[in-house]
Nucleic acid binder design. Structure first.
Length: 282
DNA sequence: CCCCAGGCGAAAT
DNA sequence: ATTTCGCATGGG
């Protein structure tokens, strides 16, 4: 792939690449030895690195495409994470350690459809295998972008491309029992489109997808629709809420209510700091 | 060999 | 309305 362009954003705060890419929100970015990352977003392959300069930093994106506006939006550079951190800490001091350690998290502005499919695949699965499944889907059904930094890269398959997949084909991709969910998703998306309305209305609409339950719906709200009120509770978050606040492990409703009352419209942001911090501790 | 993973759908209470 | 169970696959 020739014709690589370089986009640079300076004077940034509240961004660290491992925090952004390893906090569990995305599955197509992989770390290089020097701490930079290579991945695919919006049909573009990219090599992303960060330069620290005093108390600010610069983001350098070498990519096969995508406008400056696209990447600016993708990395959510208009959002003031410092202000959100202060608001969260004011309401819940126990977040201090997580926010401090995971200070560079940003919620990527990802494609709704990609997030929808990715988190359907994520259920009852581990992150390394989820990443393999997603890459396999892209390689088998996505548009070839071309060779980029030593490997052929593929866009995430569109709904139309994935609609061509059959149960038998998907069985070869080792998705497990989730292949039936992926067969039904393109048709459902074509009929219903992107959810709109209140958080509750969007959540309910997402539950009508086969393979989407309360937790996956909250991930799609947060990462695919940028609804920061969504507070996904997976097995890790359950353990965290037990440790931090003494909840019974089965009291999901209580945990959701607590998040509503203490984190409010920033519940998803709080969840990401907590989730990544406790996972990084193992 | 076992248990577990960013849970969910369907069956059984 | 709520709880239980089976589920494909691979990592640890």
């Amino acid at each position: 792939m020739n014709d690589i362009k370089v986009i640079r954003f300076d004077n940034l705060h509240d961004i660290e690449l491992p925090h952004v890419f390893e906090c569990g929100q995305c599955f197509r970015w992989n770390e290089c030895e020097d701490g930079s990352y290579i991945g695919v977003a919006g049909g573009h392959a990219a090599h992303v690195s960060l330069e620290h300069d005093g108390d600010s930093c610069s983001l350098i994106i070498e990519c096969t495409g995508g406008s400056e506006e696209y990447w600016h939006s993708y990395f959510d550079l208009d959002t003031d994470y410092g202000a959100m951190k202060r608001a969260l800490l004011a309401g819940e001091p126990k977040l201090a350690k997580s926010i401090d350690v995971c200070h560079g998290i940003r919620i990527l502005n990802q494609d709704y459809w990609e997030v929808l499919i990715s988190f359907i695949v994520s259920q009852n699965n581990n992150i390394p295998r989820i990443k393999k499944c997603i890459e396999s889907l892209a390689k088998n059904y996505g548009t070839e972008i071309g060779e980029f930094m030593g490997e052929v890269r593929y866009a995430f398959p569109t709904p139309e491309q994935l609609s061509k997949a059959t149960l038998e084909e998907l069985a070869d991709l080792k998705l497990g029992y989730r292949n039936a969910y992926l067969v039904s998703a393109p048709k459902h998306f074509a009929e219903h489109g992107v959810p709109t309305g209140t958080t509750e209305e969007k959540h309910k609409a997402l539950l009508s997808y086969l393979g989407v339950g309360p937790k996956v719906a909250n991930c799609i709200l947060l990462f695919g629709l940028r609804d920061f009120t969504a507070f996904p509770i997976d097995i890790w978050m359950k353990k965290i809420m037990v440790d931090l606040y003494g909840f019974d492990i089965k009291d999901i409703k209580g945990m959701q209510k607590f998040a509503d009352e203490h984190f409010g419209e920033l519940g998803g942001i709080a969840q990401q700091y907590l989730f990544y911090y406790y996972r990084s501790m193992q």
